[in-house]
Design a protein around this nucleic acid. Structure first.
Lengths: 84, 84, 84, 84
DNA sequence: CGGACAAGTTTGCCAC
DNA sequence: GTGGCAAACTTGTCCG
């Protein structure tokens, strides 16, 4: 390899970095699939997946933040006459 | 309350589903953070993070590439009546 | 080209189909970009883009359907003690 | 009502934004439907829709491919200090 | 912090 | 009509 610029890049070090990342990403994929399985199973038991996701999202969302979002929405909806 | 879907949602079953998902998502977050750490560490060692991400992405694509090509071939063969 | 199966595909006809589709997709992309521009401009005028998107989505959604979704959500939230 | 953000949201301005977006989205839907029609017509003429979609997708990728390659090259050159 | 990029989520379509 | 595949939209993250 031609040595360009700073380039004291150890081939082995670079390979190690890449492989560590790829290893983690595989692990992440496993978990992602597990989550999908849980939703699928729930669906099989009659649950509404979209609603479940909404619940999970809401619980993750900070309460104050949620109120803030609601307030903005309400402001706009009111301006548009979408409220009562 | 209006009865939606099969309903008579078991509180415990629902809670179990939600908590299993949240547990998996926490595990996923740990891994996501690990990946970020690896990139940060690499950056500290003088690597260009954007380039690293590009490499990882390319290797992922290359992996999928072969399958993609095969799928295309099969599609055409099927369209031409060369399969079964 | 080898004549396989039914294959009386006119090269010109195929090309025409493909190009018509690609032409439409370009037009679609223009509109998509226009929409992005409107949101950007609104953002520049101090609007909350996320809230705007929510409004648009809600107005698109049928009222009855929305109530249905809300009912499911409420059922779950109640089961989890997220209400009151 | 709570004052959110800059607020004093002009009802007319907001309505205008929303309606412009909705107008564009309708236009987009028309095009989307046109595309569907083209595929349907092609199907009626004996074409394999899945294969057509594959072709369109591939041609789009090929177009982006060159730009992608250039971007990768630039990224590396930049990382190696060969730019600027 | 603003704009680009990537990830994740949702929706639509086609085959079975 | 269900489940898997692919497109589109949304959200979040990262770099400048």
């Amino acid at each position: 390899m031609t040595d360009v610029g700073h380039n004291s890049v150890s081939k082995d070090q670079l390979r190690s970095i890449i492989e560590r990342i790829e290893h983690e990403e595989e692990a992440k994929k496993v978990i992602t699939d597990d989550i999908k399985d849980i939703y699928s199973e729930a669906k099989g038991n009659g649950y509404d997946v979209k609603a479940l996701r909404t619940i999970v999202r809401m619980r993750k969302q900070d309460a104050g933040e949620r109120a803030e979002q609601d307030a903005i929405l309400e402001t706009y909806m009111n301006a548009l006459g979408m409220l009562a």
